[in-house]
């Protein structure tokens, strides 16, 4: 049997999270096909065909599939999934929205956010905000899996030359319609793939003050994130949120600024290579996971850090 990876595509562009899911699929040992679904996705299909190590790129291109309307995507995907032993997608909001829908119609379980593969039917996944790891065995014929992208290295985006094959799409189910979107535009790297992440919490006190973090992030070529408290307070939009129910990040360097360190936040960043915490409360739980802790007023320490980096280069 073979594995199928459902590529993540946003506005016609193949997202790098796809490459992490491909790595997980390749670990299963059998041939890996990549499905590119949507509308006007030739560029993404061509990019997918260059991924190293994959067999075929299947293209499902039809107007009703634009904007990932799952009501329209599910029927052709259910038919396609029956040809595979494993169907995988990155555990992004897209993958989480779609895969349970496919699994239910195949009458199989869905396995969420795996972080390790121990056999064709044995997987490790975090539960309880990552405070517990469960090793589970699937008894179903088809395994429908979302992959925690930080747990698998990216496969090389170039080097392959897979055949591209068109697949028949279905009709518009008439259940849902795309109205609009408000996607963040940023020159900075994406939070989930950035080498450096600077996150702010309630200690920042306002959205305006996040500029301090942006300046520092730009100095380090990093992305800016936030705790749930900062998002709930309206300082920054929801796509900044790092944590159990937000984004999971594992950068080389994570700098937590004015974040106390609730377990729900730690769940989203504790696999970072190096953690720095800047907080004026020396008892803040964030210091228990930080490699380097600085007990200081962030409004002094962050500009100082930016200046110090200026001087060093």
């Amino acid at each position: 049997m073979a594995s199928l990876v459902i590529a993540e595509i946003v506005d016609g562009i193949l997202k790098p999270t796809t490459l992490n899911a491909v790595t997980a699929a390749l670990q299963l040992g059998d041939a890996v096909d990549v499905l590119v679904a949507g509308h006007e996705i030739q560029t993404a299909a061509a990019a997918a065909a260059r991924i190293a190590g994959i067999r075929t790129v299947l293209v499902l291109d039809a107007a009703p599939l634009a904007h990932d309307l799952v009501e329209n995507l599910t029927p052709p995907l259910v038919a396609l999934a029956r040809r595979y032993s494993h169907v995988l997608a990155p555990a992004t909001t897209q993958g989480k929205n779609l895969l349970p829908r496919i699994a239910a119609l195949l009458d199989v379980a869905q396995i969420s956010e795996i972080v390790a593969i121990q056999g064709p039917d044995v997987f490790v996944r975090p539960i309880y905000a990552g405070n517990v790891l469960a090793t589970i065995q699937s008894t179903d014929a088809i395994k429908i899996i979302t992959v925690r992208t930080t747990a698998f290295e990216a496969t090389a985006a170039e080097g392959g030359s897979a055949a591209i094959e068109a697949v028949t799409a279905g009709d518009d189910a008439g259940l849902s319609r795309f109205v609009g979107q408000n996607l963040a535009k940023s020159e900075r790297p994406e939070l989930t793939g950035a080498r450096v992440v600077i996150s702010g919490g309630r200690g920042l006190q306002s959205g305006e003050n996040f500029k301090l973090l942006e300046t520092l992030a730009d100095k380090l070529g990093g992305a800016v994130g936030a705790s749930r408290a900062a998002v709930d307070a309206g300082y920054v939009p929801n796509d900044y949120q790092v944590g159990q129910t937000g984004k999971i990040v594992a950068p080389e360097l994570y700098i937590a600024v004015g974040i106390s360190g609730a377990i729900q936040h730690l769940a989203g960043m504790k696999d970072s290579k190096v953690i720095v915490a800047i907080n004026k409360d020396e008892d803040a739980p964030i210091f228990q996971v930080a490699d380097y802790g600085l007990v200081a007023d962030l409004f002094k320490a962050v500009p100082e850090l930016t200046d110090e980096l200026d001087r060093g280069r």
Binding site: V108, A134, T135, I136, T139
Partner: peptide, 19 residues
Amino acid sequence: RLRTIKVTEPDKRQAGVKV
């Protein structure tokens, strides 16, 4: 449909140093 083989606690991150 899924059988739990075992549950474990992940390796704890050690607190580092205060600078």
